[in-house]
């Protein structure tokens, strides 16, 4: 499904962070697992076209998204990739319905946008209503994002990302912002929903429970590199506790001194 080779060095004052990864996965569910600051989000942003590697090549299915040697760098608008942001990134000035409709309107040209602007604001798209019904957020359609709970926001952001019919869904720590009880429920219902949609996904997380639930293939990140690539992980069903202790070993071997580079959000 995805093949990525990328090198990138970020500088921040006198410290720097280098990402150097090279892996491929044919699994329909790939989980990138590692401590924060190990380069997982940066990888996701590179796939989506939101960050640019210094050099490398990114191939999704059969299409080349980025290739530094032949100068290919598709803009995020043309990558056909859905992105679920950690803090959901719902537009705070639009109602839930408008947020979802933006996904369909975004491709309108100038003329269509202007005629849309002067048309009725409440114009409905059947697709928007359908996905709101499916995710049980239809009754919240006219609320603003700050009037929604964490779980509702997440479902709204998920619905919005899927409306563009992406080839792959990228999820950045999808459950990290939820409280623990809700997290268990949302994890299960998202698993069901995404299976039903049949959409391939790449998820990053530092929660072993997410690995148990979602990982077909698993990439272990540490300090900007892939420490290990595990295939067919779900068949082995490594439990969360094992993952944790395994992680602790890895951390001891790899990260025995404090992270020097000071990047928390890569």
């Amino acid at each position: 499904m995805i093949a990525i080779a990328a090198r990138s060095t970020l500088r921040h004052g006198r410290s720097s962070f280098t990402l150097d990864i090279d892996f491929a996965s044919e699994a329909s569910r790939l989980v990138l697992f590692g401590a924060s600051g190990s380069g997982k989000t940066l990888t996701l942003q590179m796939i989506a076209g939101l960050a640019r590697p210094d050099s490398g090549r990114i191939v999704l299915d059969d299409s080349v998204l980025f290739d530094s040697t032949s100068g290919i760098d598709l803009p995020p608008q043309q990558r056909g990739v859905g992105y679920l942001f950690q803090q959901y990134a719902l537009f705070p000035h639009m109602s839930l319905r408008e947020n979802l409709a933006f996904a369909l309107r975004s491709r309108y040209g100038l003329v269509a946008s202007l005629s849309d602007f002067f048309a009725e604001k409440t114009r409905c798209f059947p697709e928007v209503n359908a996905v709101m019904e499916r995710l049980e957020i239809a009754y919240l359609a006219d609320r603003l994002p700050n009037q929604l709970s964490g779980g509702q926001k997440q479902r709204a952001a998920l619905a919005r990302a899927l409306l563009t019919k992406p080839r792959v869904l990228l999820l950045d720590e999808p459950f990290a912002a939820l409280d623990p009880l809700l997290r268990i429920r949302m994890r299960r219902s998202m698993d069901d929903f995404l299976k039903e949609c049949g959409i391939p996904l790449i998820m990053i997380t530092h929660d072993p429970e997410d690995v148990d639930m979602f990982a077909d293939d698993l990439a272990l990140y540490s300090r900007g590199r892939i420490l290990r690539m595990e295939r067919d992980f779900h068949n082995r069903r490594l439990f969360a506790q094992d993952t944790l202790s395994c992680l602790a070993d890895l951390a001891e071997a790899e990260d025995d001194h404090a992270r020097p580079h000071g990047f928390d959000d890569v």
Partner: peptide, 11 residues
């Protein structure tokens, strides 16, 4: 991330 979200939505 709001601007990035809009971009990934195709705007």
């Amino acid at each position: 991330s709001l601007e990035q979200a809009a971009r990934t939505l195709g705007a």
